[in-house]
Write a protein that binds this DNA or RNA. Sequence first.
DNA 1: GTGCATTCAAACCT
DNA 2: CAGGTTTGAATGCA
Length: 642
Amino acid sequence: MGSTSMLQFQDLNDPPAAKIVPKIEPKLEPLDEPSPPTPPPPLSTPPTLSPFAASDVFSEFSRISEMFRSAFGQCPAGNGDGSVLPEADPDSLALVPVPGTEPHLSNVTVAGARKHEQRSSELVRVTDMKSEDQQYYRGLVRKTRMLYDSLRVFAVAEDEKQKNGDTGHLLHRRTRADLKAAALMRERGLWLNRDKRIVGDIPGVTIGDIFCFRMELCVVGLHGQPQAGIDYVPASHSSNGEPIATSVIVSGGYEDDEDSGDIVIYTGHGGQDKNGKQVMHQKLECGNLALERSMNYGIEVRVIRGLKSGAAVNSKIYVYDGLYRVVETWFDVGKSGFGVFKFKLVRIENQVEMGSNVMKFAYNLGTKPLDVRPKGYVTLNLSKNKEKFPVFLFNDIDGDHDPVHFEYLTTTIFPPYVSNYGSKAGCTCTGACFNDCFCAMKNGGEFAYDMHGTLVRGKPLIFECGPKCGCPPSCQNRVSQKGLKNRFEVFRSRETGWGVRSLDMIQAGSFICEYAGVVLTREQVQIFTMNGDNLIYPSRFADRWSEWGDLSQIFSDYVRPQHPTVPPLDFAMDVSRMRNLACYMSHSSCPNVLVQLVLYDHNNVSFPHLMLFALEKIPPMRELSLDYGVADEYMGKLAICI
DNA sequence: GTGCATTCAAACCT
DNA sequence: CAGGTTTGAATGCA
């Protein structure tokens, strides 16, 4: 290895890269027909399943839980108590045979896909993506990440159920939900980009996308190492016998790093002890050599930044910041006194702004908005202190101040007859509610939210505890009734008119806000309709709740929640005089926000609250979007409040 | 193919 | 709460 002349400067203009990195047309698969490039996941529940009787619902959750426990409970089984599952065989996940299918048949197909396939070493760069390709891959990545998040949240909720009833402490060390979710997906071949080693951007992953766990980066193929900072194609597998780096994590794990955004002095790996102290000289091998070779050939490297963040559950998040080039490398004496390799990475121009910069910008906006953007604010308090968090109104492109003229509503106003209808009963819990309390039973014997207030999975209707209940406001089953949890901004945009974005990162499954308005009777609707628009018809919202927490790709016999049956929503909401921030959200057929129906202050299932939750992790300053349930081409006419 | 060392995690413990 | 400890999973390499 010593023969490598490592300090040779690269010729960025020299195109040997083309030899090493064959360009492929993104014609990875014809996209006209929806034929996915990755093996299509085993499709979900066959429609032959009999519809739920209400009484089944109560057993449904425990059944799903049981599937989950079985899937997770493959520890060192078979040692002493060989009684359980015959062998740590993930195929046994198909615990309940799908009706109408031969169990053997399904086992065979899954078993074939199950074998841990090695990551391919074929190096490619994806270029010339057409916009329909981009949409396709964006959707694929979004769906994959949603499944990962759903699984993770579900696993966390499962874990919390294992608590000791007396002490409230976990009976065992917390299971790593991030790892479980990734493992379940890998067993089913649901990881992306395993068949090619991609140099450059990953289709469907955009700059600014946020990931909360290293395994999540592995799942989408952005960075394939669960811990290591440098990902590369090994020398043994590359076409010319040289390793090539594809991505690095800049996370502060090496004391000699210097990160100034567009330019990063990245320290090579190696020479550290178990506690991360530099105790030896580094060598030009493995990832270090790969980075040097990438420099030599002018091959771009993906950079993902690990940031400390109070907003994240576990205080660290990863942001995709785009492509950099290694322009220089040298051997240096680090702070420890030991030799380290250093790589100067320079961000390639003409990419959209770095996600980590946007995050810093948003953070500063939250603390000192006028210092960051002296002009453009119409008000810093659109809700006039009715919300616990500020709602900015920002317009720097025209003179429209319209939203400031409406009375701000924090919750929907129902007519009196709505709350006079139906049962008045609530639970009688005096402390925390448990899964057997009255309100939990109304939800099928579970709570819809985990301990952090995250929606575990979408349902036709959720019953939160309410004023009739004995439990305190801190009850786990009170989430959407407590108002905003983030700082938001209503902003003017040339593309979408008014839009809404958050100054904070929003976790997938977290509550955003209510879609608030004044509920109208039919007679009132007719009068209003004569006068024109500004009416919202809740029945038109697409049922996006069904996508959140849908585990049918994981459990072949997963049954989507179908209880309770909600009659078609037969009311309209007037947002012509009183409204909240929700009605400024834009429409998208690939939305990042879902509508979940919730009852808490009354029990009339015909008039639920429309509660909005995040369908995915939403980075700060990214526009929120809802599926209003109409075709895109009509939105221009039907959009509300533009 | 197998075992093993390496690795800019993540959660828990002190 | 900073720093140590434990459990971990993918990968490249011998």
